[in-house]
Design a protein around this nucleic acid. Structure first.
Lengths: 339, 339
DNA sequence: CTGAAAGCGCTTACAG
DNA sequence: CTGAAAGCGCTTACAG
């Protein structure tokens, strides 16, 4: 079932069929009708591989993120999948597992080689490296604070959001507020959230106590639970915890429970991400809604625009850092009653 | 950067380069070396679209599942992504949202059109419909009990697993055991789990009480919470709940908590799926580990084999229902102490 | 062991 | 408004 077959049945040339299929206006109404009938009758479907070979475009974008098992990224993937559908794009997902080499290599990733553009959710990539990637193919960085706007980037204002979380905890009467965040080589995005935490403490005239800052190995339930236990060991009088990710916060809830602490009576907990289960934990989790839908949709739209521009050979719009609004979601874990 | 360029640099024909790239043995060692050097030097990468057009294979498989936001499917997607990588396959994900028309139409899904084969996680599809899809392109049904083995199918023995859950609850002294499951048009897989519940009650000589069977709209946290509230209204003396999915169970935990019931003291809860957060809820959730890794890997391997067979023009192996082992994971929500 | 050539199905100037 | 023709980059018999 090829253009040739359709052309034969409709009694026209393949060029004409191609024009009809692409909705070009330069075809006589009567001809168009005949071709369309032939298309219907034969159930013609264009061969994508041929189209791609010819046009150099694949209509597929790559989504490179740490792992779909992290609730925050999974929800983001869902939003991207939906957004891409609206633009007629398919999505190829690849997991970097937070490995900076894989992040650097996304453009070489054999599974991502034929994609038109890449939506990258980096964890450890430097802005310069992202710029290098942008030179290879259209790239939009999502959900990560990649600095100075020299790369197309869509992100929540994580600094302000984290700061608002701390302000909220302070308003609920907490003074000894801890932070849980990935350790040593803190990913850029996590670091921004952490800096927001520091700023929030400063706003309230509170000190940053090193023993209240716990480094975690990853952003996972297990790490959160372990970090909570460690925190109680080194700073038992802590009365609130800000975890830079919901998975960490949900794990901390668990760790605190195991240690016999009552949340929020003994200790408040707040996270970041407003993942689906944050509303259904016990107690329900106070967190930041990062405007995920808007972020995913904006990033996909921009990427679609970039790939179109590139295909058309027109200059790409200059890189910019787009910021999406956030919302503080106050729930039981910080002492806000349900309902 | 094409075969031609490499051929020119190496001073051979494109056919020879192609042979080297494909590792065919019929090339003289000295020639192979020269070609490989040229490949390196030029950084040659094959054009996938051309390869696909020529070979008719894409090395991409489609994964069609209800939604990546459901924890159970998200964990499955993660396992499939990893399994596919081992076979050198990319994965294109499409969400059916449990819509049977989208399930029936997976082979026509414009985003899945060029894939070599499809891994389908159906919710409402009948076996006959799946057979019809199999005729279009290689298809493996995963994580769903699709009957009689006339379609390639990988599944947990959900019936036995659900039955084992009930046996466990009975062993923990529960007698008034409720079930939470999607309503009216119960998906095949959910129904199998439900039937396992019924069998489990029978094994213990317990009656199936209609007022203890609550139909949910979806498998989500929110549905689980709502169902738990409904259950308490219509059968307040219930002492255990078996939810056919972990999302439902985790939501029920929340609903019961809101209603002032203590789990497991007042009422035990068990789920199905052993999703990542099941170990980190409060209390930790008793559930069934469905052998996800084995299931995903088996399904992907089989699909890879089918696509290879089809490409080679050899007859596909006959359809079969593969069953994967499960494991009951006993945790606090059914009264098993932590640790 | 190596190469010339056909062709996968499409798009796109270009000519008419 | 329509068609003939070139060519995207590759693979694969086939001939030598």
């Amino acid at each position: 079932m090829t253009l040739r077959d359709v052309a034969a049945l409709a009694g026209v040339s393949v060029s004409t069929v191609s024009s009809v299929v692409h909705g070009r206006v330069c075809v006589r109404e009567e001809t168009r009708r005949r071709v369309q009938e032939a298309v219907e009758q034969l159930g013609y479907r264009p061969n994508l591989a041929a189209r791609r070979l010819r046009s150099g475009r694949s209509r597929v974008i790559g989504l490179a993120l740490p792992s779909v098992t992290v609730p925050y990224f999974r929800d983001l993937a869902d939003a991207v999948l939906r957004g891409a559908g609206d633009h007629g794009l398919s999505v190829l997902i690849t997991q970097t597992h937070g490995d900076v080499r894989r992040e650097r290599g996304v453009c070489d990733d054999p599974y991502l080689r034929h994609v038109d553009g890449i939506l990258l959710v980096p964890v450890a990539l430097a802005e310069e490296e992202a710029m290098a990637l942008s030179a290879v193919k259209p790239l939009v960085v999502a959900a990560s604070s990649l600095g100075a706007g020299r790369v197309h980037c869509f992100d929540t204002d994580s600094f302000a959001a984290a700061r608002a979380v701390v302000a909220h905890l302070v308003a609920r009467g907490r003074r000894r507020i801890a932070a849980l965040a990935p350790g040593e080589a803190r990913p850029a995005e996590s670091d921004v959230r952490y800096q927001g935490y520091v700023a929030g403490l400063r706003d309230a005239g509170l000190p940053v106590c090193p023993e209240r800052v716990v480094s975690t190995e990853r952003v996972s339930f297990a790490s959160g639970a372990a970090a909570a236990r460690a925190l109680l060991g080194q700073a038992p009088d802590t009365d609130a915890v800000f975890a830079i990710g919901d998975a960490l916060a949900l794990g901390a809830l668990r760790g605190l429970h195991e240690a016999g602490r009552v949340v929020p009576d003994d200790i408040a907990v707040a996270g970041f991400g407003n993942v689906a289960q944050a509303a259904f934990s016990t107690p329900a989790l106070t967190t930041v809604d990062p405007g995920r839908e808007e972020l995913a949709e904006g990033a996909v739209s921009l990427l679609a625009e970039l790939t179109r521009a590139r295909a058309a050979g027109v200059p790409l719009p200059p890189a910019r850092h787009h910021t999406v609004g956030f919302r503080l979601v106050e729930r039981e874990s910080s002492g806000v009653p349900a309902r």
